[in-house]
């Protein structure tokens, strides 16, 4: 079980695609910084295969005016908890 973090915006699609390909079925993706834009409805199809396994850092989404369902958003404490509940963390940037 790996926690992947991704901080790149949709213009850097290669970064997102490598991350997505590297994910196993029990991995989790946490979108941070400019990565939160991937959670917009426009990109829903590309996240479809990850359904239920994508989280968004709430402060980064709020900062950018990206309005998302609360269920997807986590705070910094929950970020730490995800690091603990997964075996390792892989950062994509």
């Amino acid at each position: 079980m790996i926690l992947h973090t991704l901080n790149q915006p949709p213009a850097n699609a290669a970064c997102f695609e490598r991350c997505r390909e590297a994910m196993s079925s029990d991995d989790t993706l946490l979108l941070i910084e400019d990565g939160v834009y991937w959670a917009l409805p426009a990109f829903a199809a590309r996240l479809e295969s990850l359904s239920g396994r994508v989280k968004v850092l709430a402060a980064d989404a709020a900062a950018r005016g990206v309005d998302l369902p609360a269920a997807h958003c986590i705070d910094d404490q929950a970020f730490v908890a995800l690091c603990v509940s997964h075996d390792k963390v892989v950062s994509w940037f």
């Binding site: 790996i2 490598r18 390909e21 590297a22 196993s24 991995d27 390792k88 940037f93």
Partner: peptide, 17 residues
């Protein structure tokens, strides 16, 4: 290939980008 990527990550203790 893409299918082998996940197991490569899983096989290492630490992954540094």
């Amino acid at each position: 290939d893409e299918a082998e990527l996940a197991s490569l990550l899983a096989d290492h203790t630490t992954v540094l980008s």
